[in-house]
Structures are given as C-alpha cells and as structure tokens.
Design a protein around this nucleic acid. Structure first.
Lengths: 194, 194
DNA sequence: TCAATGGTTCAACGCGCGTTGAATTACGGC
DNA sequence: GCCGTAATTCAACGCGCGTTGAACCATTGA
C-alpha cells in the first residue's frame, strides 16, 4: 500500500497521483486508504516518512578529509533516495515538495535532520546552515536532472560514476570561501565582458 | 495576460494553477484564454517562451578563464530567471517541468539551447553534454532551494552574494576531471569507513 | 452459536476543473 | 449609418477527483 503510494507519487507527482490509482495498484478499495490514513496528504506523509527517514543512525566520523565528507554525503544521499535507478522515495518527496507547500516543509525538515548534522561537525552552526543550502541545491539538482528531467547522459549514467563526477563540486561547496576569494570573484562577476 | 499566467504558474505550480484564477488576475473571462491560446498547456508554453527564451544573442567570449565562465553562467542564469526575488518565469518553468512531461521537454530544450553552447566552446561536444547536466543540476538546484523550498538562509540572501557563493562549485563542475582523479576518488568513496 | 470487533468494499455525493459554442459587444472601412 | 470582423463574455457541459457513511465480511472469544 505504501509501496504503491510511493510509486505513484514518484511517477506522477503529488497532484497527478490519484487516490484511485494508488488503490488500484495496491489492489484495494480507495476507501480503505481513508481508513488507515488521513486522506491523500496523510498517505503521502506516511509513505515518505516510512522510507525517507533515516534507517541508519551512523555517527559523523571525526577527522575525515573534505573529499571524504563530500563523497560520503553523495553516497548516503544516493543510497537513501533509492537503490535502483527509479529512486522512488526520493523522487516522490522531491516532486511533492514542488507541488505542495506542506511537502516542502517536510523536505526542509528531512534535510535539516539528515544533512545538517554532517556539516555541523565541520563548520560552525551558522556557516553550516548556509553550506547546507548549497549542498542541498546540488543534491536536489542532481536528482531533478537525473530522475525527473531525465537529461542525458546524466540520466543513464551508472550511479557510482555519477557520484564520482559530482563529488568534487559538492566538496567545493562544502569549503567555506577564504576571505580573499570573494572580492576576486566579485570583480570577475561584474567585469567579465568580452 | 501572459504576466498573470506566469505569476500564477510560478506561485501554484502547473497543476494547481487554474485557468480561472489566471483569468481573474488578468481581469478577463476564462474563455478568452481559449481563444488566444490552445488551452492551459498552450498558455503555459506561450507564457514561458515569451519570457524564458533568450532575449540576448551574445556570443560566447573566447579565451576566458574557467572562473569567468562559471561566473558568467550564474549571472546570466540568475538574470534570465527574473530580476527580482520572485524569479517568476524561471520558477514557472521549473515547477511546470516537475509536473508535466511536456514542460520537462521544454526545459530540456531551453537548457540545450541556452546553456550548451557556452560549454561547447570550452569542451568537446561529448564532454559538453555531460558537463551541462552537472551544471544544470546546480543551477536548477539553486533555484529550487531558493525559490521553491525557500530554505534559509539561501532564500533571503542578496542575489549577488549567492552568485558569489555558488560560482566556485559550478566552476568545479565545469572542469573535466583529470584522468588520475577518478580512481583516487573511487577509493575514497568506497573506502571511507570510520 | 452468537455477538462483537476490525478489516474491507459499495455506491454515491458534491465540487471545481478544463473546455466549448453560442451570444454579445466593440470597432473599422465604405 | 451599416455591415463584416474581431474581441470578449455568458452559460453550461461533462468528467474525474477527493471524500464519506453505510453495508458487508471474516475472525475471534465466551
């Protein structure tokens, strides 16, 4: 039932996923879903929380290198989104968050609970929130391009290979810019005219 | 009329945007939209193409540095998405692409037409397609985090500041990994256990 | 054997949506 | 002033959705 819900939510997006189709796929009457869950929204929350919430309680390793942190983030993110190419639970949550404000709040909560602690260990609490935004942008963007937009060749790349390709940029987003870097970039940004 | 459509599509997403609400905001009868455009989908395409399609035909500057390329991409992307914090046309297209497969195709086309040429000048055609996916992931991810999820502090950051923060990671995604980098990262990726 | 309880289905309601074709108004050439 | 044409509105259709309350069925404990 939750299986079917996740599948349909991922395939169609929150709004286009109909309770009737979920019920059909689960070989159940639609009314049964209303007996167990509080409507469509409740079913979505239950389905997502059952699968996206952390199945691991691993501690943040101390003293790892920056590249190690980045690689670990990509790996756990990809693993949690789903082991196969469909990435069902992750896509369901992402697409839901794009449609429904409540689902967006849910996704924000997931990010803060699952991603933020890994950065707090490395950066101060203030910087961690900012860096989390940048890292989350990359992870969500990767999922969007690969699983929703299905933009080639990223969509068909083996997962390991994509992780290797994406890790360096994520590592770069993790590193707080040194004081001197911003002004130089600023000059480039506003002055690059050809 | 197109103004109103973009606004509603951006605020509500494609599926929740109703023709009636767009008409109400444009102070027009819903049926009028069907006279000028071919239904809701046609209205979406017309609205997006009117505003997201390139208003500039600037050539790709030759011989610019990597950082310059990255900064230029961020700047033109942010500028094209919309000058103010709402980023109306971009959000409309992004959210539409998450809901409607046809809109996803439209977004893929926009990326290929607007982003790909900038990378072809720097990398070979094959590598350009792959790198475009990684860069697109970052740009779309930034838009998602800032304008849809409204994750703080990224959502409230001045646009220039965000561009400066994001540019280095995008530059890193632009650079094709040297041959030796992949195996080392692979070892880190699979071996980082603490 | 029977009542009770929890799981499951049936049938339907009401709403709001996208959409349409006819009716109405505004407007420009003669 | 009149007519043809375009712009705009009116009124309504049909559909599929989320949702609901009552009915049905199976299991179980006394």
């Amino acid at each position: 039932m939750i299986e079917a819900a996740l599948r349909v939510f991922a395939d169609r997006g929150y709004d286009r996923a109909t309770v009737r189709e979920i019920a059909r796929r689960a070989r159940v009457d639609p009314a049964l879903l209303y007996h167990y869950f509080a409507g469509k929204a409740g079913l979505f929350v239950a389905a997502v929380q059952a699968r996206v919430q952390p199945p691991d309680r691993s501690q943040v390793p101390a003293g790892e290198t920056l590249a190690q942190t980045a690689a670990r983030l990509v790996r756990t993110a990809l693993a949690r989104w789903g082991t196969d190419a469909r990435a069902v639970p992750f896509v369901a949550l992402l697409r839901g968050a794009m449609s429904d404000p409540a689902a967006a709040t849910l996704l924000r909560g997931v990010l803060e609970r699952d991603l933020l602690p890994h950065l707090r260990a490395r950066l101060g609490p203030g910087a961690a929130a900012l860096r989390m935004g940048l890292v989350a942008a990359q992870l969500l963007g990767l999922g969007t391009v690969r699983y929703v937009l299905r933009l080639e060749p990223v969509a068909s790349l083996p997962l390991e290979e994509l992780a290797l390709l994406a890790a360096p940029a994520i590592a770069r987003a993790l590193r707080a810019s040194p004081r001197g870097a911003a002004p130089r970039s600023a000059r480039v940004l506003s002055g690059a005219r050809s």
